[in-house]
């Protein structure tokens, strides 16, 4: 009796050890397989930060044009993100929850700005909203000129970046368990309450990932912006434009600007991910 229970105990211990070994082997393999891509992605970024001399970094940070570019980038990308959330969520919900004629076409249409070269996006925006554009002509008569303004900067960012959120949110909404929504509706929740209290929290991770992609893409936006909004320091010169023009003027300055862009993006993305993930976990429980 005693020996029997002993032997089962040792057998169980052996299984546990074996499992731990297996896990360790898997971990080692996984790390080994991940190294090439991680190295490839981080090495150029590291080279940028290393080349940007710390002295230049500080003096550039307090340069008026650099500060203007940082501020303009932050203000326009925040606006773009808010607009994307408000305008993109309904489209994503429509795509995730309704089947209709032209569903596949609409879904594909949303993909297009992602594949379009940004320069072409800029020209398309000009042809639509420029002074002689399809819609721009009417706007111009009303005294509204969009090109060369901050509105144009936001529109360029919205055009190229909004699809990222819509794609992610569509997938997120589609994965929410409909039974829970039905249960809430049965308990008397209104459609909007169900959306706000059930759908959004349950698809929170996907929405967050989409929002981050959109913000990051908007922050790096260059081609559409320089065509549609032009380049004017303090008005339409965002960080990528300042970096591009700086690259031709002074390589060191461009490098420090790039390092600033990288570090701010990293900080913002990191903080948002950590903070919001905690909030989301608390929320969905």
């Amino acid at each position: 009796m005693v020996t029997a229970s002993n032997s089962t105990a040792t057998a169980a211990a052996a299984v546990r050890v074996e499992r731990r070994w297996r896990r360790a082997r898997e971990d080692a393999l996984l790390v080994l397989l991940s190294v090439p891509l991680v190295l490839f992605l981080t090495l150029p970024l590291l080279a940028l930060v290393v080349r940007a001399a710390p002295v230049d970094f500080l003096s550039n940070l307090f340069d008026v044009e650099v500060a203007q570019a940082i501020w303009l980038s932050m203000a326009t990308t925040t606006t773009t993100l808010l607009l994307t959330l408000v305008l993109g969520a309904p489209v994503a919900y429509l795509l995730a929850r309704r089947r209709f004629r032209g569903h596949a076409a609409l879904d594909t249409l949303i993909d297009l700005p992602i594949v379009l070269p940004p320069l072409v996006a800029g020209i398309a925006l000009l042809l639509a909203f420029g002074r002689r554009g399809l819609l721009g002509q009417q706007l111009s008569i009303l005294g509204v000129d969009i090109a060369f303004t901050q509105v144009a900067v936001v529109m360029a960012q919205l055009f190229v970046a909004a699809p990222f959120f819509v794609k992610a949110a569509t997938a997120g909404f589609a994965n929410v368990d409909r039974e829970i929504e039905y249960a809430a509706a049965l308990d008397g929740a209104s459609s909007f309450q169900v959306f706000r209290m059930i759908t959004v929290p349950l698809s929170g991770a996907a929405l967050l990932a989409g929002a981050i992609m959109t913000w990051a893409r908007a922050l790096g936006e260059f081609g559409a912006t320089i065509i549609f909004a032009g380049n004017f320091p303090g008005r339409t010169q965002t960080m990528p434009l300042a970096i591009y023009l700086g690259f031709e003027l002074n390589l060191n300055r461009a490098l420090t600007l790039s390092a600033i862009l990288l570090l701010t993006s990293f900080l913002v993305l990191f903080v948002v991910k950590v903070l919001l993930r905690q909030r989301l976990q608390a929320w969905s429980q």
Binding site: A229, G230, F232, T236, L245
Partner: peptide, 14 residues
């Protein structure tokens, strides 16, 4: 001046 373009062709295009 509303924009300082990156090259002369861009000025002409605008």
């Amino acid at each position: 001046v509303v924009s300082y373009e990156e090259n002369v062709k861009a000025v002409l295009s605008k």
